[in-house]
Amino acid sequence: MKIHQLSLFLENKPGAMSAPCRLLAQAGLNIITLSLADTEKFGILRLILRDWEKARQILEKGGCVVKVTEVVAIEVPDRPGGLLEILDGVEKAGVNVEYMYAFSLRQSHKALLVFRFDHPDAAIEALLQNGVTVLDSLAAFGRSEE
């Protein structure tokens, strides 16, 4: 039920993001979603790709520092309070959210959230108990790569 996310170290400077993006574009790999955490001095680019193993190889060969992290993707009802219900459940299980980011897909009215939990397995258990839809593979992300 966990999916793989690639994290890249970036310096906080112009052009830092384009280098990894160029590597992926040249390899014909599509980014399903991403998030960028930034601080004054550096940033962390987090990427979700279907073919994450190939992407990792290409990025590392291109000189990037890449870390693979297991994250949890869930569906959230696209209405007020939708996120709150989910967070309540996770909170009760004593699980901490390290970070999260959201995106939506054209085809559906559901928002998708990517969570990095400190204890992903406990989080998944709590989420399932609360009837939350946890995506078990990237196939559910809809968009396909030609």
């Binding site: 994290s7 962390i44 990095r116």
Partner: peptide, 18 residues
């Protein structure tokens, strides 16, 4: 220079490292 061993995907871990 950040190496795979030093790198973490969490901002706080990298700030701790600094």
């Amino acid at each position: 220079e950040v190496t795979p061993e030093l790198f973490s995907d969490r901002v706080s871990a990298l700030e701790d490292l600094q």
